[in-house]
Write a protein that binds this DNA or RNA. Structure first.
Lengths: 202, 202
DNA sequence: AGAAAAATGGAGTGTCAACTCCAAAACTGG
DNA sequence: CCAGTTTTGGAGTTGACACTCCATTTTTCT
């Protein structure tokens, strides 16, 4: 439903099943190539169920964005909270690379793919994704600030710019890895970004 | 036509008009959301004309990839051939940023957008785009090698890795700029990459 | 000029995808 | 246990889209 109606536990589970199925399909095929029927089959629900929980396909897409945002930011929190050393930074790198390898380099970044797909066709989606990226950037910035506070990085660095550049490296690396079907581009992109940070250590 | 049939000058012009229109539309809406009818209208051609020059939509997509590759690599040649100083590198940066600004940050990178759109749905397209990126990467690598030869960069740098990382920064910066509708992310991403190179100058 | 080849016009055609609708089953709260 | 609400089933409906077909005009080549 477009507006919140009371959702039973069972209803919530169904809704979640739909969003999960849609997320996976849209990551692989893109939004436009993912049909409602595909989602119905994958989530084992009927048409009326789907339209009971979502106003239309667009509404479902927004739910997918939120889900993927939670998922990605969850992983990033795991890797970036309490960032206190270069060692921890490398562990974060390994986390991302391992995740991509686990997926066989398929799909690229869930947020990046949605962004590229929707940026020009759905202003609401674009704004929401911009917000997701801003949060991600914030985690990186906090991590760098923490390293400054601990004396791992010089105090006069521009954490804002470095966080943004780092995020760009991750996104670019993921895209190239998706195209090339190797984790190499992501590895090199992030390693180079970290190498640059090392030149800024105290 | 799928196989080469002799093309009249007029025929070639029509074909080009179709590819140009398709390129523009697909950059903005993505491949799946661009209909043959849209392309017909934009290129001022009839259905029979379109299918006279292309076997099907897929075939047209490949032509679009080739066109965008030529376009992007053309600009990159312009900025990267005879790269002899950091000044020239910054000029290249300004070239890309200016180009993005001219388009109002719409569409992102023509190759990156196609890659994200087609990587998981069209293996032929993915391979061709991988090749396009490899060429781009080659231009960067040659540029860095030239700077080494001129004594601008240390001779012991890994030009392969740095070129790949540079490309990732550009791609990531373009994606984030597209989402945020500001050239800032691209600027910061490329500037940071250049800053890292400066730490490797002789 | 004149035959062959290329380019064009535009009305179909079949399929598929998003969304609707009505009724029935399952669940909730008092 | 009963009334109201939520959840589910599944057969339509409507429109859109990729692609076809055949006739006609234009161009090429000798």
């Amino acid at each position: 439903m477009v507006k919140e109606a009371r959702l039973t536990a069972k209803g919530l589970a169904t809704r979640q099943r739909i969003v999960d199925a849609a997320s996976e399909l849209m990551l692989e095929r893109g939004v436009a190539r993912t049909t409602i029927e595909d989602i119905q089959d994958a989530a084992k629900v009927s048409a009326s169920q789907l339209y009971h929980y979502f106003a239309d396909k667009n509404d479902l897409v927004l739910a997918v964005i939120d889900r993927q945002t939670d998922l990605v930011l969850g992983v990033q929190h795991q890797g970036l909270d309490r960032l206190d050393s270069f060692e921890a930074l490398v562990a974060w790198r390994d986390l991302i690379v391992g995740m991509l390898r686990g997926l066989g380099c398929v799909g690229g970044c869930p947020l990046g793919s949605l962004a590229s797909d929707l940026a020009e066709t759905d202003p609401v989606a674009r704004a929401r994704l911009a917000n997701s990226f801003a949060q991600w950037e914030g985690l990186l910035r906090s991590g760098l600030a923490a390293m400054c506070a601990r004396g791992e990085l010089r105090a006069d660095i521009d954490a804002d710019d470095l966080a943004l550049a780092m995020l760009a490296s991750v996104q670019g690396g993921l895209l190239l890895s998706q195209v090339r079907r190797t984790t190499k581009p992501l590895e090199v992109a992030v390693d180079t970004a970290i190498a640059h940070l090392r030149t800024l250590s105290v």
